[in-house]
Amino acid sequence: MTSYTFDFAGQRLEARAAGTLYWPARGWLIVADMHLGKSERMARRGGALLPPYETEATLERLEAEIAATLPSVVVSLGDAFDDDAAGRGLDDAVCARISALAQGRRWVWVSGNHDPGAICPRLPGTDVAELRDGLVLRHEAGQGPDVSGHYHPCLHLAGQRRRCFMVGRDHLILPAFGAYTGGLETTSPTLAALVPHGIAIACGQRALAVPIGATPRRRLA
């Protein structure tokens, strides 16, 4: 079970175990909150010098997702870059790697709150504020039904914290794909308000669906 198939807003979609969303009818691969360049941004601001490998790690995983789904369109659902400066300051090698990934397919950058500006000219693809094409795709959940990222949802399953998708009536919220991204519990007031009922699909080795709301939570010993 490397993916979990479900219906949202009249479309059949696949939540993949690695944390991307695949839309088979269109051949779209959607990825949210990669936060590339996060460690560099922290260093620039005089903060901690985190291991500078998260862009490498995130791209490796993205390459694997694209190789597995061979999408015709890749949509980055905002916060692809930890800030606009990080987006512009990418290594040439990283730009080349993304360009190689974009070969033979369309690439759309939806802007997020971390990267509201125009996309770096060295990168392929177009940037948009939001995308309306069968589904509404935007960075932060708005008037539903829409597909969004931004909140980095996660949950606890069998004693482990996992990133997850949240699927409700009005909103489908993607997990953060970036290596150095934190998470907000699905039970937090903000997320519970957006998706009071529905399912969460936990990422990891396998995509595992669990209900949101309704049932009491139990744990394995």
Partner: peptide, 12 residues
């Protein structure tokens, strides 16, 4: 973990 997830889904 799969069993737990399945049980929760069934219960719901």
């Amino acid at each position: 973990a799969e069993a737990e997830a399945a049980a929760l889904m069934a219960e719901a």
